[in-house]
Write a protein that binds this DNA or RNA. Structure first.
Lengths: 335, 335
DNA sequence: CTGAAAGCGCTTACAG
DNA sequence: CTGAAAGCGCTTACAG
């Protein structure tokens, strides 16, 4: 039923070897033979069986991709879709495929990695999280992570310089006359926010400003009412922050709503700068000044790196840093 | 280097056939032998080569998934991430993998389908769009689409009853005293919006209300200023609509901004009901009354259907309808 | 209950 | 320039 290389060989009156070579543009085949065979293969709608091909070549042209959290969950973040787009474009251009780390409900990222490497299909893995991936789990597959792992020297990764970004965001506010700026969304569990916090502190120090414990609000989402209470009280104080650096547009938007609800105006009373430059942030009122971390390029570079890596496993550890840009809009006021 | 079934056989002092059978829990192997072999395999960290396995079994346990538009692009829509989550959960539970339709910049959905089926890895395809997929492109692979194809009788698909949904949304407004309701976001290119429009018209007719051409605004996004102009003029008229059905929360949010900008209040002057029940819609001020089409379940059912289909290709054409629900919030006022 | 053999569909030295 | 043969790593009738 399914047509094989033998069928083509028979139809062309040659051996399977010759067909194989013709299809691969092996130079040791006469020009006309090659054309002839290709034409026949085309007519017969022959598609070489990838399984067989991969079995001998040891190359599947498949890269496994694992997302943090549950599959799709992280997708809601606008950051990941852009990353995926970057990954997809270079994968497509290089004729590679992406295999998704699926996983039953509640599976951890380690399990997804495990499952993907065990599948035996992927030649390499892209892990969209900086958490160290236990080498034992990757079954020897090369891995590139998005975000630098704890021991950056030994890893393959693509990342922003998040301490520089945190510093830049903070400085942006300081340079516009803000003396008390808060940091919203710090989560010690995530390297990204830890790095940005570091930059935040540096900027404060360099400006000779104190770094108050109460000013960094270590929450991730505003859903939690306890946390919202903490936030509210921060802005109820007479010496409230006049500027805040938010880890994500979504937080900034929620904060906006809260402030307006409290009778405070943005940027009239409080200026906001955040991260990720999302569509929602652009649609916000006021449109958010936000740092674009170039997720598309992060994705591109990650895919390029893993492809290089599967082809040349001896590639020395590599860390790529993608530049970020402050997108100036209307949520920051100069004092 | 990479350890094979032969190595395990040698270590266990049996033939490869026996190892294979033990690993597959073939009943014709003694209990102790099975355990023994499994233990050894485990210790040796043996992972059977999937390529070889698939080559003989003709089963890859891989389902190809193609998204509309460019890879990742559609992900920004919150609808697709949820679908993906549904797909991923059942795939994971059934030990299936998902292969993404990648594609170079600007590739069409047809090309993605083509590329995926040509890859030879996928046993079946899920196409997240209702556009008819030319059979010629699928190379005989079973396909399930999200959204009913033009000729629903012959297809395999999962969908909402979008005419009922359009009708329900419209009726929701009519029942609350609205006499003139507009429809925003109609795009003849998409079956979904065409179906909803049909439902909108039915609701109007059933209420004995006229269906004015000017009241259906056939645009997709509000980015386009010309379109915004058209919209504005619609609401500048004294007999402006008091209610509008939006195809998506994002449009409703943008419309909200526009109305506020025009000095109109939501829901004071204009009531809004939209589709997709997104996080952004919930965070909007006011929170949006929106129809949840249950994308997660759409994904689950689609994956279940394709898996059934690859196992039993003789399954007769099947169309699954997923129920929707109106999530009542604060963007609709009773007149 | 277990093994030897054939085969899945391709590729690639090895001969010629 | 082309073909016959061996082999990629597994599975599965076929014997015993």
């Amino acid at each position: 039923m399914k047509i094989t290389i033998k069928d083509v060989a028979k139809a062309a009156g040659v051996s399977p070897s010759t067909v194989s070579r013709a299809l691969h543009d092996n130079p040791r085949i006469s020009e006309e033979m090659r054309k002839q065979i290709k034409k026949i293969a085309q007519e017969m709608q022959f598609h070489p069986n990838q399984m067989a091909r991969s079995l001998v070549s040891r190359r599947s042209r498949i890269i496994g991709v694992v997302f943090p959290g549950e599959v799709g969950e992280s997708m809601n973040h606008s950051f990941y879709p852009s990353v995926l787009q970057g990954l997809g474009h270079v994968a497509g251009a290089r004729r590679y495929h992406m295999l998704l780390g699926t996983g039953a409900e509640g599976d951890s990222i380690a399990e997804a990695v495990h499952q993907l490497s065990d599948s035996g299909y992927a030649e390499g893995l892209i892990v969209l999280a900086a958490e160290a991936v236990p080498a034992a789990h990757t079954a020897g597959l090369p891995v590139v992570t998005l975000g630098h792992p704890a021991n950056a020297e030994n890893g393959y990764y693509v990342d922003n310089d998040n301490v520089a970004a945190g510093q830049a965001a903070t400085r942006y506010l300081l340079e516009r006359g803000h003396k008390r700026v808060a940091l919203l969304g710090y989560d010690p569990q995530f390297m990204v926010t830890a790095d940005r916090r570091k930059g935040y502190q540096q900027a404060l120090e360099q400006a000779g400003l104190p770094c108050r414990e109460a000013d960094v609000v270590p929450i991730r989402y505003l859903e939690n009412t306890t946390d919202e209470g903490k936030l509210r009280s921060l802005f109820e104080r007479p010496d409230r922050p006049t500027g805040v650096v938010c880890m994500d547009d979504a937080q900034a938007i929620a904060l906006c709503h809260m402030l307006v609800d409290m009778g405070l105006s943005v940027p009239g009373d409080v200026s906001l700068i955040s991260f990720n430059d999302t569509p929602a942030g652009r649609l916000n009122n006021p449109p958010l000044t936000s740092i674009n971390v170039d997720p598309y390029q992060l994705g591109q570079k990650a895919m390029e790196l893993i492809i290089r890596l599967v082809k040349h496993p001896e590639t020395p550890p590599t860390g790529l840093t993608i530049p970020f840009a402050i997108m100036e809009r209307d949520s920051v006021r100069t004092l």
